[in-house]
Amino acid sequence: MFSNFLSISMAVEPPFFEKYKAILQSSAEMEKFPMVEVCEEIELPLIDLSGLNLGPFERQKCIEQMAEASSEWGFFQIVNHGIPEELLDRLKSEQMKVFHRPFDKKAGKNFLNLSAQSYRWGNPLATSLRNLSWSEALHISLKDVSRMDESNKLRLTIEEYATKANLLAQRLAECLAQNLGIKPNYFQENCSPSSSSLRMNRYPPCPYSSRMFGIIPHTDTDFLTILSQDQVGGLQLKRDGRWVSAKPNPNALVINIGDLFQALSNGMYESITHRVVANQEVERYSMAYFYCPTYETVIESCSKPALYRNFNFKEYREQIGKDVKATGDKVGLSRFLL
């Protein structure tokens, strides 16, 4: 009975041990990378969005709290955000069903009738433990959701969630832009409901958790990210030159600033490097909504002297692709400094 359970479990998991055998079996490789440091656990700034619906004083205070957190942390948590807990639970349930399908189905052609690049795992360019991500993901561009089977409960739940997440992201972005001189309708004009994307993550138990990551250090390529996660924990961010662990909050969503908002705000808000550490014993789930503009949207620093040259979103994405292919890593905003 145990062997049957094990075979079913192995059929679900991506073949990390086969794909990355040379890296995982190299003793020299293990010695090269010391154990991942134990980090201090901190609580991200927590902001109650109900203040936006109260009087002018409460609204302004709430906006100032978001702006301060975006400048000092690049991250904050929100409660009373308007996305029902029931919807988040339903989406996680569908997410778990997807990832518990056999690997050959997930990695096969036309999985969920999405593009071949939608299901991802590991890192095809990995050359060492420190650039191998022990995770799998379903990355869905919202313009492609309509291609999914209409009877698919996952599609219906994603559509419902995306509608609410888009409104929330727009609201947050407009609040953060309020004191930057950016016109009020900037995000409404440049971010269509289909220009954003949703990434569902699963982090399987990892026997090498002390020496590698669930997701390698990176910044997000968007205006802002709305993150829903479980209670396993593992999110870490680099603050003042050192890594800290963000304590998970069961009642909050996590918001973080992306590269585009850092450029748009002329460095007022910071896109912080973050990562996810692997867990040896339990699997972890998270879901990220990336609030993005259309490809033609020009990102121009809101004040002078500008730190970054003007660029459009398509150009930025293409440059990231070139850098990852050439170096195995994202270079990001430093490519666009004046």
Rank of each mutant, 00 (worst) to 15 (best):
4 N>S: 15
10 M>V: 10
11 A>E: 13
11 A>T: 07
17 F>K: 14
18 E>T: 12
20 Y>K: 03
21 K>V: 02
23 I>F: 03
24 L>F: 13
29 E>P: 01
30 M>K: 14
31 E>C: 09
36 V>Q: 08
38 V>T: 14
40 E>A: 10
44 L>P: 03
46 L>E: 06
47 I>W: 11
47 I>C: 11
50 S>K: 15
51 G>V: 04
54 L>I: 09
55 G>N: 13
59 R>H: 12
59 R>D: 07
61 K>C: 14
65 Q>F: 09
77 Q>K: 14
85 E>T: 10
87 L>Q: 02
90 R>L: 08
92 K>I: 06
93 S>G: 08
94 E>A: 06
95 Q>A: 08
96 M>F: 10
96 M>E: 13
97 K>M: 10
100 H>P: 01
101 R>K: 15
111 F>K: 09
112 L>A: 13
116 A>G: 08
116 A>T: 08
119 Y>N: 04
122 G>N: 05
126 A>F: 01
129 L>V: 01
129 L>D: 01
134 W>M: 01
135 S>Y: 04
136 E>S: 04
137 A>S: 11
139 H>W: 09
140 I>V: 13
147 R>C: 10
150 E>G: 02
150 E>P: 05
154 L>W: 04
156 L>P: 02
156 L>D: 08
162 A>D: 01
165 A>S: 11
167 L>K: 14
169 A>I: 00
170 Q>T: 10
171 R>D: 11
180 L>F: 09
185 N>P: 06
188 Q>R: 15
189 E>Y: 02
191 C>N: 11
195 S>M: 03
195 S>W: 09
204 P>L: 07
205 P>V: 05
207 P>L: 09
207 P>S: 09
209 S>H: 15
217 P>I: 01
227 L>P: 00
233 G>D: 09
235 L>S: 04
243 W>A: 07
258 G>C: 06
260 L>V: 00
264 L>P: 05
268 M>P: 01
271 S>P: 04
273 T>M: 14
276 V>N: 11
281 E>Q: 14
286 S>Y: 06
292 C>S: 13
299 I>V: 11
300 E>D: 15
304 K>I: 07
310 N>C: 12
313 F>E: 01
317 R>S: 01
320 I>Y: 00
320 I>C: 02
323 D>R: 00
323 D>C: 00
324 V>P: 00
326 A>G: 00
328 G>S: 00
330 K>I: 10
336 F>H: 06
336 F>T: 00
